[in-house]
Design a protein around this nucleic acid. Structure first.
Lengths: 201, 201
DNA sequence: GATCAGTTGGACCGCGCGGTCCAGCCGATC
DNA sequence: GATCGGCTGGACCGCGCGGTCCAACTGATC
């Protein structure tokens, strides 16, 4: 029913629409973005929207997917090079700094809670994004363990889940309270919890 | 502009409407609850709604406020009697169990993220609810410290913030993933973090 | 330059929603 | 039982939204 573009012109149009939608959805939220908003932002016509997408839900799904991918790219850049505790600390500090500069909530978490009961396909994108995020944290912890900085009995997967939870909770509280303090405290606690598993030499 | 009811009949009507709205908002979300839904659930007429409330936002605000109050009552019951680490552990386990039985997200956090950018008055209710929740945790930790179970250098306020963040993050992840595991891990980590501050005797 | 799939513009539709209005009802007061 | 303020029923309005439809355009292919 949708329509895979057959020409490069078509592909460009479709892509432009999804990118614009992702941007709108990120800054105003899924619920507050109408098809007319997308139309206005892209200069596309109504028929284009329904030529390339089955319905609003499909466009939302793709926009959420793209946004998750973009957010994940940023996170990967922060965590990709982390091999030591000091680097982990630095990465978290940068996240905090990033939040203080653009105090919107978590780009993934915000979308996730908007679509969780409304759009199953979009929800799955956010689930995948969280899994990838958690994986990046776990990999960093694994590198720290391989390096001998973390005890052998530390469980990177479990630690990664708890770190992600602290982060998300901190972001949520800070967003609602409009005060970065909660996030700062949550991050410090998460870091300090990981520090429990450091080898002592 | 709104209208404070002048008779007991009026007060009953108004209260009935707010209670119904709170229930609907809790189970379907703010966005998914229309005035017609409230009308259908209460048997009230359109004019009653606008007789007692200035507009939809005001009704949402009151519904969110009531819902926060109800949720907080449950939380207070769980945390009110906590004076030892073992009791804290038990309280958190009960929260987990409660979630597993009704795996909707956090009643306060879910509403909060729905209204944060849309309804300032409602947002303030959720902020107050979170503050109260955090206070209840801090009080429990204080009792533990007074009892000598927690070190004197433990900071109940700060610990309470980090615990709340873990909890919220765990609830969010579990809700999105539809799997209580994230919440379980987050709660265990939070508890274990507090355990760091236990006195050793 | 005729053709044809793919693409685009934009008028149009129906509906659900928030919000308005007013006529009528209830019940306390004298 | 007349009066009168508060309360209630429900018709009505306008608008924004998701979604449909078809005519017109574009450009590659022969």
């Amino acid at each position: 029913m949708p329509a895979e573009p057959k020409t490069s012109r078509g592909r460009a149009s479709r892509e432009r629409i999804v990118e614009s939608a992702a941007e709108l959805v990120a800054e105003r939220g899924v619920h507050a973005t109408s098809l007319d908003d997308v139309r206005a932002a892209t200069g596309a016509s109504k028929s284009q929207l329904y030529h390339y997408f089955a319905d609003r839900d499909e466009l939302v799904e793709l926009a959420v997917g793209l946004r998750c991918q973009q957010a994940l790219a940023g996170i990967a850049q922060l965590l990709g090079g982390v091999t030591t505790f000091a680097q982990l600390q630095k990465a978290l500090r940068q996240m905090l700094k990033g939040y203080e500069e653009h105090p919107t909530g978590c780009p993934i978490g915000t979308l996730a809670s908007e679509v969780v009961e409304q759009n199953e396909a979009a929800r799955l994108h956010t689930v995948a994004a969280f899994a990838a995020w958690e994986g990046l944290i776990a990999q960093a912890l694994n590198r720290m363990r391989d390096r001998g900085e973390l005890r052998a009995d530390a469980q990177p997967d479990v630690l990664a889940t708890s770190m992600l939870a602290s982060l998300e909770g901190g972001l949520l509280l800070s967003q609602i309270r409009r005060d970065a303090k909660s996030l700062r405290v949550a991050l410090e606690a998460a870091l300090s919890y990981v520090a429990n598993f450091k080898t002592m030499d």
